[in-house]
Design a binder for these strands. Structure first.
Lengths: 181, 181
DNA sequence: TCGGCCATGTAATATGTTACATGATTCT
DNA sequence: AGAATCATGTAACATATTACATGGCCGA
């Protein structure tokens, strides 16, 4: 069975410390979800597969009477993680951007609504920025918090969506100026 | 049947002039594919659905003995397109960015390979820029070519990937500097 | 005449989301 | 006591890609 999309998310999430499936989902929702999502329906079955292949192993760590299984990397698992990271092949890059798709087709709209559309899309990216800033405050509010690659990745997304918000605002201004002429 | 992802790609593609299914796929591959892909397996069945719902209508335009069906918007189809464009709801925005995912998990790598990874991802975005520039030259090389929203959308993607390429290059430099210290 | 492109379509496969079922613990 | 959260898992559904089948046209 060749590694799938979620395989490496799980392997990567376990590189720092053992985690439960629920725990992995938490991490994903606070970080990678903005550029690589994963749902329970992918995570739990994949944990089973990875165990069968010897890339991770589970240890029971119940909380009282509540069952709970922590997963950790095996040496083979860490090897697969590192080899994926170091592998020199085109990384997958895909986007579903309904905002830009609308912008692409925008000349079907009357001129004033074109301006409104550009503004709305800009606002949308501004809202994503706000969401990311909240996460930034939650996770890195403490100045003692370590700032490694996850932090840099968050900054990447923050700057990216700020750039997008600005781009659409400028587009809206250009369109509005054309309207007045 | 509520409109799906590809519904509006098709409706939008037909706003300028009638097109065949093949034709729509060509347009997508040269433009929206970078932010909204669609395959034959989606396009042809969807054309059938849209016809049954009265949003488009097909006219036979064979080339010699080769069958060919051109599709055009009905008034209802144009209405649906405009109402989608003007609709004020959160546009879908999703990304699968394996490069950033690797970067996120990069501390599993030795320091020198971290630098190499950042450079590789930067190069990847530079290659996308090159692809987009080729399309730009092909489609807008003629100075007389009109520069509407599709052109602006292409510029958006171009600037975006240039920004990304720069971001990773700078990250690689920061990491390399840390290495020397 | 042959390779590449125009053209339509579908079946098999892969991928991924949503909703639900179940139950314990912790916080207010 | 009740709500939120921790925790695991799956079935049904929705979505999308790949590969293939078929065949005509056009230019070197």
């Amino acid at each position: 069975m060749k590694p799938t999309a979620t395989t490496h998310v799980i392997l990567g999430a376990l590189q720092w410390r053992p985690r439960s499936g629920y725990d992995i989902k938490q991490l994903v929702d606070r970080s990678t979800r903005f550029f690589w999502a994963a749902s329970y329906g992918q995570i739990y079955p994949e944990l089973g597969r990875l165990e069968r292949e010897g890339l991770i192993e589970g240890v029971d760590h119940p909380t009282g009477r509540r069952r709970r299984r922590l997963w950790q990397l095996t040496p083979a698992g860490r090897e697969e993680l590192v080899s994926w990271l170091a592998r020199d092949e085109e990384p997958l890059y895909e986007t579903r951007d309904e905002g830009l798709l609308k912008f692409f087709f925008a000349n079907a709209l009357p001129a004033d609504e074109q301006v409104a559309l550009a503004r709305r899309i800009g606002d949308h990216h501004a809202r994503i920025v706000a969401r990311l800033e909240r996460i930034e405050a939650d996770v890195y509010g403490d100045p003692a918090a370590e700032r490694g690659f996850p932090y840099e990745s968050l900054q990447h997304r923050l700057e990216l969506h700020r750039w997008m918000a600005r781009w659409y605002d400028e587009a809206a201004q250009r369109l509005a100026a054309g309207l007045g002429a």
